[in-house]
Amino acid sequence: MNLTGRSFIEPPDFSVEELDGLIDFAGEIMAKPSAYAERAKGSLLATLFYEPSTRTRFSFEAAMLKLGGQVIGFSGEQSSSAAKGESISDTIRTVACYADIAVIRHPKEGSAKVAAAAAGIPVINGGDGGHQHPTQTLTDLMTIKLEKGRLSNLKVGLCGDLKFGRTVHSLARALCRYDGIEFILISPEELRVPDYVKVDISGAGGCAYREVERMQDVLPELDILYMTRVQKERFFNEEDYIRLKDSYILDAEKMRLAREDMTVMHPLPRVNEIAAEVDSDPRAVYFKQAKNGMYARMALILSLLGIE
């Protein structure tokens, strides 16, 4: 696997073998982090966060610092020259004069691709609007591998706001390339996955999907339940919201419908879509997921910088 100098904008940028290699590498770092403590010494990561972020920004910063590297960046559009009207291309070109690698989060879809084309250094998409979030996917794949021991032959329920949920879009585009994946897309009609995600799933050969409205109907058959939040303001009318809102809230009662070995995942932040009582259920792995994310990002940074 040689990812030196490349950017990571969406999961199809890397082959399945390369994704597997990154997950394995992240596992090695997790097993012995001290062995990697100085690996990125002398390297600088720039974090360009035009939008708020807790987990993604902190985990990137923590990842770089734990590798012995350093971090510069901004958080919030107002603290960058974007407030003066500077384009993404010009900003990243300038940042590339100082940093060795950059991560960008921006509200516009496709912004990271624009940045990568202009940068001349590796660029990582830290979330571009409601479009893609590939490093969350790396985290998710690593978590699935650790929990299930495999990334193939899985029935995966994706639940909530599938229209604007960038973590769902990236995960579906990555997982559909593995064998024997079946997605059950659980959402209200207004919040179904965009057409392009369905095109990718359908075009992946061995992957199937079906769309349902209620979580309760499919819980007993799932290997993995991937939860996201459904926001009230996303619904077109109050009536539908009242009718469906409980279908997207996971609680202990619904967990009784699920199999003993089902895994519950969530990219976080969670608001009320998973009741706090589920946190103590051994099937809930969302906080483990957050921790895995740091190791996945350490593996990604080292690989893109070409450091063994």
Binding site: S89, E109, G110, S111, V114, G129
Partner: peptide
């Protein structure tokens, strides 16, 4: 025409489309 697309704000980039069907 997607108002959330980066092409709506980034002046220098060309609109590019690929045939899917």
């Amino acid at each position: 025409k997607n108002p959330r697309c980066v092409t709506s704000v980034e002046p220098s980039i060309q609109h590019i489309f690929h045939l899917v069907d």
